[in-house]
C-alpha cells in the first residue's frame, strides 16, 4: 500500500496525494501560493521569531544582544505592575465580551425590524468606528472634562454623579477608557450582526410567530442560534483584540493614575521605549501572544467538538 502525505486545500480539508504522483504538478500548485508564503515569511514569521528570541535577551534596542536565559520571565512573574496589567486586560475582555456585544445585538435586532432609514442608522452607528482613535479620544476627553464637560453642567442641575475627573480617578479610569473604546466599537458589531441576521430564513420567524413566540423568544430561539458562527467569531476576535489593546489607553490615561489603567500593551511600550529594555518588553509581548494562542486554541477545540462556528 502506497504511503500518503497531506497537503492543504482551500476548504481546509486535507487531501491525500499518493506518493509517486508527479512532482511537477504539485510544485506548480505550491508555486501559486509561494509569493504569499514569502511575504508571510518576511513580515510575519521572521519578526515573530525575532521577537520571541528577544525575550531571552537584555537588548536595549541598540548595540549588542546578550542572551540571559529566562531572566526576563523570572522578573516578569514577580512584577506587580505586569500582573496589574494582565488583570486589567482580563477586566477589559470581560467588559467587551458583554457590553458592546449586548448593545450590538440589541442594535442589530432593532435595526433588522425596520425597513425605512436602516441605511442611515447603519452609517450613524458605524461612523465612530472609522474615526481615528485620536479623534474619538479628544471628543470624549472634552465631553467628560472635569471643568468644561458635561459633569459640571449636570452638577449645576443637581445631577453630580459625573462631576469629577473621571479619567484621573483610579477607580474609574479603566472603565472610562473602555467606555470610549466600546462607544467606537459597538457600531462595528451592529453591522456584523445585522448582516448575519439578514441571512436568517424568514420562514423560521414565521413559524415561530405561528407558534406564538414573542419578539424576545424569536430572538432567543431563532436569531441567536442562526447567527451563532458570527457571534462566536466576534467573541474570538474580541478576546484576541483585548489582549492587544493599546491606543485608547495610551492616549487617554497613559496607563495611570498609578498604573490603575495599565494594560499589557502600554506596559510593553513603556519598557521598550521609555526604559529602553526591549528584551523585557519582548517577554511581555510573548505573554500577549500566549493569550492569543489560547483564544485560538479554544476556538479550534470547539470546532473539533463539532460546534458550527
Amino acid at each position: 500500500m502506497a504511503e500518503s502525505v497531506l497537503i492543504p486545500k482551500s476548504n481546509s480539508q486535507p487531501v491525500k496525494v499518493k506518493q509517486g504522483q508527479s512532482f511537477w504538478p504539485t510544485l506548480g500548485r505550491w508555486s501559486f501560493i509561494l509569493p504569499l508564503l514569502i511575504i508571510n515569511l518576511i513580515i510575519v514569521i521572521i519578526p515573530s521569531v525575532f521577537g520571541l528570541l528577544l525575550a531571552f535577551t537584555d537588548w536595549s534596542g541598540y548595540g549588542p544582544i546578550n542572551f540571559i536565559g529566562l531572566d526576563n520571565f523570572s522578573k516578569l512573574f514577580q512584577d506587580a505592575i505586569f500582573f496589574k496589567s494582565l488583570s486589567n486586560n482580563l477586566i477589559w475582555t470581560a467588559l467587551f465580551l458583554t457590553v458592546p456585544i449586548a448593545v450590538g445585538l440589541l442594535g442589530a435586532y432593532m435595526l433588522s425590524g425596520i425597513k425605512r432609514g436602516q441605511i442611515l442608522f447603519r452609517v450613524i452607528f458605524f461612523l465612530p468606528y472609522v474615526f481615528a482613535s485620536v479623534v474619538n479620544t479628544q471628543i470624549w476627553r472634552q465631553i467628560l472634562h472635569p471643568r468644561v464637560g458635561i459633569g459640571p453642567i449636570l452638577a449645576d442641575y443637581g445631577i453630580p454623579f459625573l462631576d469629577f475627573p473621571i479619567f484621573g480617578t483610579r477607580e474609574t479610569a479603566l472603565f472610562a477608557v473602555a467606555f470610549v473604546d466600546g462607544w467606537h466599537f459597538w457600531g462595528f458589531l451592529v453591522i456584523l450582526y445585522l448582516a448575519a441576521m439578514t441571512a436568517v430564513d424568514a420562514e423560521l420567524y414565521e413559524v415561530a410567530r405561528l407558534d406564538g413566540a414573542s419578539r424576545f423568544q424569536q430572538f432567543r430561539f431563532v436569531t441567536l442560534p442562526s447567527i451563532r458562527p458570527t457571534l462566536v467569531f466576534t467573541i474570538l476576535m474580541i478576546t484576541i483584540w483585548s489582549s492587544l489593546v493599546f491606543d485608547y489607553v495610551f492616549i487617554m490615561t497613559g496607563g495611570g493614575p498609578a498604573n490603575s489603567s495599565e494594560v499589557m500593551g502600554t506596559y510593553l511600550y513603556q519598557n521598550a521605549f521609555q526604559r529602553f529594555d526591549v528584551g523585557y518588553a519582548a517577554s511581555v509581548g510573548v505573554m500577549m501572544s500566549l493569550w492569543v494562542m489560547l483564544a485560538v486554541a479554544g476556538f479550534v477545540y470547539l470546532r473539533r467538538r463539532g460546534w458550527d462556528i
Binding site: H145, P146, F164, P165, F167, G168, T169, A173, T253, G256, P257
Partner: peptide
C-alpha cells in the same frame, strides 16, 4: 483641588 485633577 485634588490629586485626581492632577491626572486630568
Amino acid at each position: 483641588d485634588s490629586l485626581e485633577t492632577w491626572f486630568a
